[in-house]
Structure formats: structure tokens, C-alpha cells
Amino acid sequence: MSTETKQKKMITDVFVEGARKGWNLGVNNIIPNVLMAFVIIHVLNITGLLALLGKLFAPIMAVFGLPGEAATVLMGSWLSMGGGVGVAVSLFNEGLLNGTHLAILAPAIYLMGSQIQYAGRLLGTADVNSRHYGILFAISILNALIAMLIMRIFV
């Protein structure tokens, strides 16, 4: 796009364009993801599995200042960032996570987020040496864990 055509746009139009992207994301991404996460957490809650997972992961998650249930947020994130956010807000809704926990989790959700998808979309597309895939996954998870420790200092 050339500079001339860009300058013709009104700032308000540019804002509306972005807000429309937000609406589409909300309808196509956030609402379905959060709805699914609420149902999954509801199922885990009714069956007692959430409490079990919470107990199982409590010692590990305690290192990061988080309750054991927060492990489900990280698992969800690894599959999809939106899913991870969905799980986080539904646990907040259940009173299992508070604002401080959400702040600690926020960077980690993205740093280790959507890895399966991105292996194809990024590493595959850019033809990254396939011998390095394993370490790339490991680095992302390491990034997420360290980020939680850093966030713990800030909150």
C-alpha cells in the first residue's frame, strides 16, 4: 500500500476497522473458546477431576505462587492461546484463581501457547531445520516457566 492512499484514511475509520477485527475475533474466537472452557471446567468440577488435578499439581505450581488447578491453564494454552485464556477466566469465575494468579499466568499463556499449530504455521513454513524442533518446544516452555517466576516478583 502506498503512503498516499494511507494518508487518505480518517483516524476514526482506522479505529473502526480495528474494532471490527475485535468484534470478529470475539464472535469467532473468544466466545466459542470461553464457552468450551466453561463447559470443560464445569465437567471437571462435577466429576471432581479438577480438585484431583489441583492436588496433583499443587506442589509444582506452588513454586510459581499458583494453586494446582492453574496447571490446566498451561495445558490449555499449549493447545491454543485462546483456550488457555478461556480456562483461566473460568477458573477465576469459580474462585480458584484470583487477579494475582492471572497476572502471573498471563505471559506464560502466550510464551508456550498454540505450539502445535505454530509448529506447522511457523516452523514448517519457514523451513526451519527439523532437527531443532524439539529444542524449540523446550525453549518455549522454559520461557513460560521463567516468565511466571518473574511475574511473581511484579505482582
Binding site: F15, G18, G22
Partner: peptide
């Protein structure tokens, strides 16, 4: 959550 996302992306777009 939708209005927050709409507002944030509107500002980011600008």
C-alpha cells in the same frame, strides 16, 4: 470481554 477486545484492537490499529 468483547468490548475490551474491540477497543484494544481499535487503538492498536490506529
Amino acid at each position: 470481554l468483547v468490548p475490551t477486545v474491540m477497543f484494544a484492537l481499535g487503538v492498536v490499529n490506529v
